[in-house]
């Protein structure tokens, strides 16, 4: 099959174009690490209001790295609402109750960790302590990095495959090699299949590296199966590649390809679930339904946070595959402009 010749050629080009290879493989790693540094910070000194705590407890907790102030319940409620403290700790008999302000997940985590440490230190004295955690805002959510991580993985795969795939197809058009290929017995679908195959292999490699790095190095929360994540990122890569090559038809040069980023990529980020859209008008929220990344992000969150399997997100798989089939068909049609066969 001649598509194999196209695949082989693309792989060779990649081997020579080290920059593009590095962009696809390591730029996501760099960006995701930066995000991890920004979003996954834990070196935070929490401010805690303490109400009616036994002396044994305050003696221990006062040595911890945190800012404590004792006050009555009413005063504590006020400063908590005002956001002046991260949490209020109160005692009723042997029951310890913690009310968290809740809107900053990093603060939540550091308060809880601090308390658990303290309780462990106290354990020889008080065996029967139960800790009840309440939230003023939000809930016992994961941290922001865990929460947005799955979407980010999907986004990076989509973005870089879109860009690199689109530009290399554009270059074929500009440098005349597309025309030369079409002046050969190569069929239109073989060109497209070759592209999908060649870039698909790099997308697999890219996905593997991003997923592995995020989960095992950055310790991103992962409840589901590694292979399910790989499947979804591959479907996303396929959609991104076919969309990128399709849109390259409408670009006259590399710079015009870059101009598609704010039009095609950025809106997908807004609607993919990194930002909470619950308060948005349902009609506007519907915009996200026409974007591949939305489906990829839904499935990835399901796998990584809730540990779902394919039966839970078969709809997302079907839609992503549908997008690819649509874009691939349009690609083959667009090539018809050059040659009818």
């Amino acid at each position: 099959m001649k598509a194999a010749a196209v695949i082989h050629r693309i792989l060779r080009q990649f081997r020579r174009d080290k920059r593009a290879l590095a962009l696809m493989l390591f730029a996501p790693i760099l960006v995701i690490t930066l995000l991890w540094l920004v979003l996954d910070t834990e070196e935070y000194e929490p401010e805690i209001a303490i109400v009616d705590a036994p002396v044994a407890f305050t003696n221990i907790i006062e040595h911890k790295e945190a800012d404590f102030s004792s006050m009555n319940m009413r005063e504590a409620g006020r400063v908590l609402k005002a956001g002046e403290v991260d949490g209020v700790l109160s005692w009723e008999d042997d029951r310890l109750s913690l009310i968290l302000e809740g809107s900053d997940s990093a603060a939540n985590r550091s308060v809880i960790r601090l308390l658990q440490e303290t309780l462990q230190d106290m354990n020889p004295l008080h065996q029967e302590i139960t800790l009840e955690i309440l939230y003023l805002h939000g809930s016992a959510e994961l941290n922001l990095f865990d929460n947005t991580g799955p979407v980010l993985i999907g986004f990076f795969v989509f973005f870089f495959v879109f860009l690199v795939g689109g530009i290399s197809f554009l270059r074929e058009r500009i440098q005349g090699t597309l025309e030369k290929s079409l002046a050969s017995p190569l069929k239109r679908w073989e060109i497209i299949a070759g592209y999908l195959g060649g870039f698909g292999l790099f997308a697999v490699l890219q996905s593997l590296i991003i997923i592995f790095y995020s989960i095992y190095v950055l310790d991103m929360f992962m409840a589901g199966s590694f292979w399910n994540v790989l499947l979804i990122t591959l479907l996303l890569a396929l959609a991104a590649l076919s969309l990128g090559t399709l849109l390259s038809t409408f670009a006259g040069n590399e710079f015009q390809m870059i101009q598609f980023i704010p039009l095609v990529i950025v809106p997908q980020v807004f609607f993919s679930g990194i930002f909470n859209l619950e308060t948005m008008h349902p009609f506007l929220r519907g915009i996200g339904r026409i974007m591949p990344l939305t489906y990829g992000a839904e499935a990835l969150r399901g796998i990584m946070i809730r540990g779902e399997g394919p039966s839970d997100y078969w709809m997302q798989i079907a839609v992503l595959a549908g997008f690819s089939v649509l874009f691939i068909s349009l690609n083959i049609l667009a090539l018809k402009k050059h040659r009818r066969l």
Partner: peptide
């Protein structure tokens, strides 16, 4: 059965 050489050099510069 046709060989075609375009006016612009249709070659892959990386290869």
């Amino acid at each position: 059965h046709i060989g075609f050489m375009a006016q612009s050099d249709a070659l892959y510069p990386e290869l």
